[in-house]
Design a protein around this nucleic acid. Structure first.
Lengths: 225, 225, 225, 225
DNA sequence: GATGAATGAGCGTTCATTCAT
DNA sequence: AATGAATGAACGCTCATTCAT
């Protein structure tokens, strides 16, 4: 899930564009809608896209299979919807930071983004799991279609930030901006990964982030300043 | 594919251990063996494990379905074999560097590993694609079974390298070794990714690596020295 | 099929218990349901469980293979259902006798049970054949799962009957109750067997049963001597 | 396995008649022959005929699959051979009793046959298991072909015995000879069954047999009444 | 005579999706 | 709008047997 992958949901049907779930779905009683979403979250968090089963989701959500296809065009449609839910939710975490963008220097902003990102991952483990599953399948048909455009967008955001930082003299002007943008995104992903999988489970999130920022900072900071 | 995930192939049946393809497969005429391997490379490079189809492989390799199961215990068996082929091949690229481990300082060694790693990826795109597909499915049953132990092994290797570097005064002793090991592995993966997906396709590999190392180096190098 | 193996069918889904065919099956038009059951009866009467083919059943019933698995969880599920049909049917034959249990002395009750049991076998040859096939596979995984507990139940029933008979002075108190219970069950099975396989096809069932009961009552020793 | 199902083995190939294993098999070194037989015993004792796997037998016996079909015409051929081995072995137990046929009265003879039969079952559990598996599949194609003719033979033997007993005044002349013959065979089968499956495991075989014979001789009616 | 690779029909089962009601 | 039965291709895999070497 790109840090900035925000997109409006609840979108009305626009001309020709294939818009996410049908209005039928949105008009559903909250309780039923929730059942469907919960079932989908469980399923996609448990299985990679290709192995996830519409049948199981239908069963768990206790809806008719015909209904499913009145709510969503197909399996992929639901999947995209769930991913967008994640993006939306993530924006709720990151938004406040982004709004104060100008009050922070580059590294403090980065730190805040990482802090909030980890908080999001901790509090929305299924959404995080689903997004991570997708991200690693970089060349699968599904990735290209869904995330393909999002990563560049996130990359552009970081590039802008970096350029700004260089202008302000916070960042070493020698670095390759595109490359560093890519590294920062990757390391962000690596962060939650590290938290969950490779130990340091007990280490305080803040401490971990500071340690990583220390490494990043001393690499790209302008030392002559 | 872990940098150090080298394992002997063509292994004769050892005590109880379930060894990769059957001897039947190894005794096959080269041409046929190649057909099977090529078909498998194509399939696993094109589809994630769960979506990859034995049927398609069989068709492409022009063998009887029964034969397939005389060569390999099951789909997973073939998959593991292909992964090992990749590991073996990768070691052919990295081995020479590792042998001269003591002649290089930390950063030069890292540079060499990255250089050779990218060369491998460029020259074995299908193997690289297959390994990357697997690595991203971190929590799928198949990942745990196959790679589970390999990442830690690679991590240990980097940790040892880092500790050595600290001892020799090449590396900033302030850094968290586990975290940095994790970062280096991640960035290595990110590297080939960057080469292919996010632009800079035309940039010379060496230049790219040097740029990345510049960032890394100034982050963890002992500046007091 | 145990003499007393009666269980309600058409059961609605109870807590967690995996209930036989799905409601989908029960809601089917009678004609279609019948086609499926008939096909299954033919198949399981012709082949032992492991050799019986779902594919053949599907073909004969003229349903889509996918449909089959909407009616039954799997092959075993259908098999169990057919067995229960048999149990249910058998109870329809034995029930009236069991209800009058107290009006008969032991030997008359036994006689009635045998009479009705043979009538059932004659009128439901496929069900009888299916049950017999299962009973002979005593140690196959499937037997244990399905019948395992039923034989003891039948044995308990006979033991209770025997104990009662001894109390009333109808039965020789010298005999080993467990052993005799076992013998009576076995001989019951042997009876229908005898009717069909080993000749006496023409002999009146009642006469045959009386002959067997004579032996059970009096043994075969020449007492006049 | 019928009590008297003895048939010569090691039979040379006669005209047209499909004779059991090929001479190739008999000329095999003892050790290899034994491997094949042991593997077959294990397999057929573990699985009913239709589920037993030639492939597994071949693997366990460590012979080439081609070889198998040089020793035996097909799976059924091996199966028949194993069954005959059992018959032969059983005759080794029963033979001595049968030779002294004239020294015993009917009940003593029966007792001896049962005693030796149980001894056989105890000492050759795999053969016993295989035969029992078959016997219960009474209407399977395989049963008809193999055992079909053997049971009548055993029945004839018992009938002769019974007729003799009646002549000598040992047996009640009222009983139906065919039926009783059938009952005695069935009860013999029930006996080992009872020993193994339905409890009384600890009861001394002799005691058990005596108890059953008591019932056969005297019936279960309370005559004192 | 021994070998073991080759065969392909058949297995039970899952699947996403459609469509009549 | 909701239902849930129907679909049939495709799946991974097993099997007894054949046959070239």
């Amino acid at each position: 899930m790109g840090i900035l992958g925000y997109k409006k949901l609840h979108n009305l049907n626009e001309r020709g564009v294939n818009i996410l779930p049908t209005s039928t779905f949105f008009n559903l009683p909250e309780e039923k809608k929730k059942r469907v979403i919960e079932a989908a979250l469980d399923e996609f968090a448990a299985y990679p896209y290709h192995k996830a089963s519409v049948t199981r989701i239908i069963k768990r959500a206790k809806i008719a299979s015909g209904s499913f296809y009145q709510y969503f065009k197909d399996k992929k449609d639901l999947y995209k919807y769930i991913l967008e839910l994640g993006t939306e939710r993530k924006f709720e975490y990151l938004g406040p930071v982004l709004e104060k963008q100008n009050e922070y220097d580059f590294f403090e902003l980065l730190r805040q983004l990482y802090v909030r990102g980890i908080k999001y991952a901790r509090e929305n483990p299924r959404l995080e799991a689903i997004a991570n599953k997708l991200i690693s399948n970089k060349d699968s048909e599904i990735y290209v279609e869904i995330i393909g455009e999002q990563r560049p967008r996130t990359a552009r955001f970081f590039r802008a930030l970096l350029e700004d930082g260089i202008k302000k003299g916070e960042i070493d002007s020698e670095v390759d901006i595109d490359l560093v943008a890519h590294m920062l995104i990757t390391l962000n992903l690596a962060l939650s990964d590290f938290v969950y999988k490779d130990g340091k489970v007990d280490m305080d999130d803040m401490v971990l982030i500071d340690k990583m920022l220390y490494v990043i900072e001393n690499g790209i900071k302008n030392k002559s300043k």
